[in-house]
Simulated scan of single mutants.
Amino acid sequence: MPSEHNPTLPHRPPEPAVRLEAVTKTYGRGHGAVTALREVTLQVTRGSFTAVMGPSGSGKSTLLHCAAGLDRATSGTVRLGGTDLTGLGETALTRLRRTRAGFVFQAFNLIGSLTVEQNITLPLRLAGRPADRALLAEVVDRVGLTGRTAHRPARLSGGQQQRVAIARALITRPDVVFGDEPTGALDTVTAREVLALLRETADTTGQTVVMVTHDPVAASYADTVVFLADGRVADTLGSPAADTVAARMTTLGARS
């Protein structure tokens, strides 16, 4: 009886959670055209926490939006897991975003007329999927909102509202959670609580987190920091400390 293990088969590394290959993004045409990304190649490991940093106008948010399928690259290839986003139509892209990507932004983007629970489960309703009550209870507990699911957003603090947004991002069990300055509107203490929650998401669920930030302290929660300058990857830093990240940011223009 043959062994289940075949030593002749090559070991295949796991598919990256996100992969960009020679991605360029240009807005407009002719003399008014602005190129936000220039030939960017980047891989994000599954289950990791990656921060993206760079000066204003360096292409951070554009990179995030292209990686998440919120915007289309002008050229190059974008893959979310094994799926090539380049050739997908709008309907397929929308379906992918609703099931395999979660989003957390600086603005909480909650609907004031809905309860916390209704805001959290909104992506499921949009996708025509019933809420898994056990998963909902788990996510609510993880983000520290037990006992508040019947409240309206107006009754919550800013930090609690961002926790609702994170729960909403997690409820579909996405492969990747994308954050665009998710702590930008929060005070220091609340921001650190939210960052710890994102760190825990990567550590305990195996989900991947990709976060754009301008804050070296926020970036220090990540496994890797990717630095952009003028639409290109200028550097990467593993196991980042806040002071090291800050020092790299001050020299980014000179070295890139």
Rank of each mutant, 00 (worst) to 15 (best):
L156Q: 03
S3F: 13
T45S: 07
A185H: 12
G82H: 04
G159M: 12
V164W: 08
D243Q: 11
D132Y: 04
A218R: 07
E39I: 08
T50F: 05
D71K: 02
G158F: 08
L37G: 01
G57F: 11
T149Y: 05
T83M: 11
T45A: 11
R173A: 06
R168F: 05
S56V: 11
G253F: 12
P14V: 07
T94P: 01
R163V: 13
R98N: 14
T188F: 00
G102D: 05
G128T: 14
M211P: 09
T86G: 15
P10V: 14
R192L: 09
P216L: 11
R142M: 02
V189A: 13
T205R: 04
P216F: 13
D180T: 09
P182W: 14
D71M: 06
G144Y: 08
F105H: 10
H65G: 05
R148L: 14
R79P: 01
A67S: 15
D203S: 13
I111R: 01
R199K: 14
L237Y: 07
L64G: 10
L198V: 05
P240N: 09
T115M: 05
D84Q: 08
A101S: 11
V226T: 10
G69I: 06
K25I: 01
P182E: 02
A169S: 04
A191Q: 03
A101K: 02
T149M: 07
H65C: 13
N119L: 09
T115S: 15
L42D: 00
A167G: 01
A254D: 06
P7H: 07
D141P: 00
L198R: 01
R232F: 02
G147Y: 05
T172P: 02
T183G: 09
Q106A: 11
V52S: 01
P182A: 06
Q43I: 00
G144R: 04
T99N: 12
A196R: 15
F108Y: 11
Q118E: 15
L110S: 13
T83A: 09
M53F: 12
